[in-house]
């Protein structure tokens, strides 16, 4: 399938879902009346709900989904392994730890950019540790094991930080950090996390051909003019920015970076470079769809979005591992 066609379909779906998501919520908004008010620039309870709650939620879903999908595709291209995914390899978990430390220490209250930067720093450390543990082109087993290690440590550290926080509510909020949610997010979150996610996207989408060359091995890639140290740094830093800022405002939403690239890979001829943009768009589609799902589900408390992506993603993950182990044999 031509990239243009695929990306147009994905982008349109994302826009449709974002718009649909803005019509979903606990309150029934009088759409006609509200649209009129919006155009007239009037302010009412409905427009406030729409502009300050629904729209930021939709925008954030789009940005976070794109970041997760893109980071997943880029990491898989770099590590040459379809199991590399920010959640599985522990980058999201490390980002959560970074964000939690910044948030509960009160730093985030001092200046709001501190929160996504904390997430980015945490993500960066997580990636570095992963690389040290698993090496440059690791086998499936090594990557999964390294990811387990990073996740275990990051998760424990996060729980510890939350329990040590003097605020009694902190310990209960671990559910947000580990399962993710877009509830009650505001435009402020979009404003301070959005640009940092965009920095990550820029780094990940720059020179996509490098990842293509890498599919022939490091030596061939180097002979084709790819600077391997630069590439590695770019992907690591880019994934840290994108995932770090995303997790800082939405908690850990797992499996997006696994499911989306995997589904789209055959549609882009398995080419890592083409997969990047498509995965970003596909990630946005998946997250927006999941966010609509948690809001229409008739539960007393809104379900955390990470639960939905895990229910979809975990079986996927197991299937992938199974297939890859067969191949490695």
């Amino acid at each position: 399938m031509k990239s243009r066609v695929l990306n147009t379909v994905l982008a349109s779906s994302a826009i449709v879902l974002a718009a649909a998501g803005m019509t979903v919520g606990p309150v029934d908004l009088p759409v006609g009346e509200m649209v009129g008010q919006l155009f007239a620039g009037e302010r009412s309870a409905s427009t406030i709900v729409f502009l300050e709650l629904r729209v930021p939620r939709g925008v954030l879903g789009l940005l976070v989904g794109a970041s997760l999908g893109l980071a997943g595709a880029a990491m898989q291209g770099l590590l040459r392994n379809p199991l590399a995914e920010p959640g599985i390899v522990g980058i999201s978990g490390s980002a959560a730890f970074g964000a939690v430390v910044v948030f509960y220490s009160g730093l985030a209250a001092l200046f709001s950019l501190a929160l996504p930067l904390g997430g980015i720093a945490g993500a960066f450390v997580g990636v570095m540790v992963l690389f040290i543990l698993s090496g440059r082109q690791a086998s499936t087993l090594t990557i999964v094991l390294a990811g387990i290690a990073v996740n275990a440590f990051a998760g424990a550290a996060t729980a510890l930080a939350l329990n040590l926080s003097p605020n009694p509510y902190a310990a209960f909020e671990i559910i947000f950090w580990q399962l993710g949610s877009f509830a009650d997010r505001s435009f402020e979150h979009v404003l301070f996390a959005g640009p940092l996610m965009a920095v990550g996207w820029f780094m990940l989408l720059w020179r996509p051909g490098d990842l293509d060359a890498l599919s022939l091995g490091e030596e061939t890639a180097a002979s084709l003019g790819v600077s391997l140290p630069h590439l590695r740094f770019r992907i690591i830093a880019g994934a840290s920015f994108a995932v770090g800022a995303a997790v800082a405002v939405s908690g850990v939403i797992g499996f997006v970076g696994l499911v989306v690239p995997h589904l789209l890979r055959p549609l882009v001829g398995f080419q890592p470079s083409r997969l990047l943009l498509s995965s970003a768009l596909g990630g946005a589609v998946l997250v927006l769809a999941a966010d609509i799902f948690v809001r229409v589900l008739p539960t007393a408390t809104e379900l955390k979005i990470g639960v939905v992506t895990a229910i979809v993603g975990a079986p996927f993950f197991l299937l992938l591992i199974y297939r890859l182990r067969q191949e490695e044999v």
Binding site: R80, G209, D212, A213, L214, S215, L216, G217, E219, T220, S223, L224, G225, V226, R265, G269, F270, Q271, P272
Partner: peptide
């Protein structure tokens, strides 16, 4: 340069693999 061992990480098509030579 053509190294001794060239793994191909993804099931790319022949045409795509050859086209990678144009990267420089």
């Amino acid at each position: 340069y053509l190294p001794q061992k060239t793994p191909v990480s993804w099931p790319l098509s022949v045409e795509r693999v050859v086209a990678l030579g144009r990267l420089p």
